[in-house]
């Protein structure tokens, strides 16, 4: 049950359904079966395999194979070697998240509450970039941020950039790329939340001495919390693990942990390390999510 429901508890409580027997009692479990099987085969099994790979003897090789030696040392070793990329991942996606919130919240609010008949069109506009591939969108940003492009030219003209300044191949480009690429994941859940916001509640707040700013802080914001939390998680989690933006818009100095994992698995063929890094990333994200949900304290999301 959501606390958002306005329906009075006493109004028309349906009679309990008659008790059913046999097959229909199994039905919920049968419905669950395809999803559960899917999760088992494509998530749980690979996860266990990854977990065991992260504990292989690091001195093994593709030719000779890897022995399972419960080498927990892989974890501190991997962290020690790549902590800068690790912290960079979280830093970049956190900055990108803040930027995305500054843009995405007003956008979602405007679409949900103020767009009127333009609502659907605007929603399509938010989703439209997703119709093209992630790679193509990121490559397009290379053109936008190009040293000889209009944007850099403009920034140089107004002296926000030095005459030799550039955007491409800088942390700014990577953060902008992350912000852009994951913005819809933030906006859509936020929109869904804000769309349900009853404008009469804002009138009530205003009637009860809340200035527009206070009404936002005390009514709009808390009521959009489920969408805000879902949106920030949907933004933050993939952004932290992303490597395409750093690869295409950054330099080695901007590489994130995703780039390292990519290289560990595909280039250096260091499977134990790649697996250990993947698990560290997962653990770190889970920890952050857990703390975040605790702080935000919304059972409504989960």
């Amino acid at each position: 049950m959501s606390a958002l429901a306005h329906v009075p508890a006493s109004a028309g409580k349906p009679a309990p359904p008659p008790v059913r027997r046999g097959r229909s009692r199994l039905l919920p479990y049968l419905l669950l079966l395809p999803g559960a099987a899917w999760l088992l085969v494509f998530f749980a099994l690979p996860l266990v395999q990854l977990a065991s790979a992260s504990l292989y003897d690091p001195s093994g090789s593709l030719t000779t194979g890897y022995a399972m030696t419960w080498a927990f040392g892989n974890y501190p070793d991997a962290l020690q070697a790549y902590w800068p990329q690790f912290s960079r991942s979280f830093l970049y996606s956190a900055i990108a998240l803040v930027l995305a919130l500054l843009m995405g919240y007003p956008l979602a609010y405007a679409i949900a509450q103020k767009a009127g008949r333009w609502k659907n069109l605007l929603l399509v506009a938010v989703v439209a970039p997703m119709f093209t591939s992630f790679l193509v969108r990121t490559l397009a940003w290379k053109t936008i941020l190009s040293d000889n492009g209009a944007l850099v030219g403009l920034l140089r003209d107004v002296h926000l950039l030095g005459p030799d300044g550039r955007l491409l191949a800088t942390p700014i480009a990577v953060v902008l790329g992350l912000t852009y690429n994951f913005l819809p994941f933030l906006v859509l859940p936020l929109y869904a939340s804000l769309e349900r916001l009853d404008p009469r509640l804002l009138e009530a707040a205003s009637d009860l001495y809340a200035s527009p700013l206070r009404a936002f802080a005390k009514v709009t914001l808390p009521l959009s919390m489920p969408g805000l939390i879902a949106g920030t998680l949907l933004f933050f989690i993939p952004a932290t693990g992303d490597y395409i933006n750093a690869e295409l818009l950054g330099t080695p100095n901007e590489y994130m942990i995703g780039n390292v994992i990519d290289s560990a698995f595909l280039v250096r063929l260091d499977y134990p390390q790649g697996a250990a890094l993947s698990f560290l990333l997962m653990a770190a994200i889970l920890a952050i999510v857990f703390v975040y949900l605790r702080k935000a304290g919304t059972e409504e999301v989960l």
């Binding site: 606390a3 009469r200 509640l201």
Partner: peptide, 16 residues
């Protein structure tokens, strides 16, 4: 919010 007037709304508009 500056008026010494308060309203009981038709829908009640209680903050959920």
């Amino acid at each position: 919010y500056r008026r010494p007037v308060n309203t009981v709304f038709q829908s009640y508009a209680l903050f959920p």
